[in-house]
Simulated scan of single mutants.
Amino acid sequence: MQIGEVAARTELSLRTIRHYEETGLVIPSARSQGGFRLYTDADVARLMLIRRMKPLGFTLDQMRDLLDITDRLDSGDSLEADEHQALLDRVRVYEQAAGEQVERLRVQLARAEEFAATLGTRLSAAAAPAPLRE
């Protein structure tokens, strides 16, 4: 599929996809005869993983590292037991970091919801008609 379809499927901008290509996070699987980038479902899955990492504050280097780990684990190549375990241990570090960031985001969201509710209450109180004075 071409980059426009990938952008629609991933909800990423063309610019963002090109940036991820420039930084080496995702490489189009092929080019058309006209030079257009062509992506596979695996490329889309890779972009979705990147998209999920971004709001958790992972750096491009961390994203690249995790993608390398998952590529090696998914390659089908036989890995030595120690190497396989080391890769899984690195994934666990990312899992823990993601969990910690999710918790921080939950706290931020709760505070934001409280703030929005406070504003709603203030608006409701201000919009209520004032009691009549005698």
Rank of each mutant, 00 (worst) to 15 (best):
M48F: 00
D43G: 12
Q96K: 14
T40M: 02
L79T: 07
L119Y: 15
T10D: 08
Y39Q: 08
E134K: 10
R37W: 04
V6D: 09
A97T: 09
T59A: 12
Q96P: 04
L67R: 10
S75H: 05
A117K: 13
L109K: 14
T16C: 01
E11Q: 11
D43L: 07
A117H: 11
L67K: 11
D77G: 01
L66H: 06
R64Y: 04
L105Y: 03
K54E: 11
I27Q: 06
S32A: 04
A8D: 09
G120P: 07
V44W: 14
Y94F: 14
E21P: 14
A97H: 08
V6T: 08
L12D: 02
A42C: 14
P28W: 09
F36A: 05
Q101L: 02
G24M: 07
A81Q: 06
I69Q: 11
L14W: 12
Q96L: 10
T70W: 13
V107E: 15
V91H: 00
G99R: 14
R104S: 04
V102L: 15
G57L: 08
D43P: 12
A42E: 15
A8I: 01
G35A: 06
E22S: 15
V26R: 02
R104Q: 09
M1E: 15
E103C: 02
L60R: 01
L14F: 10
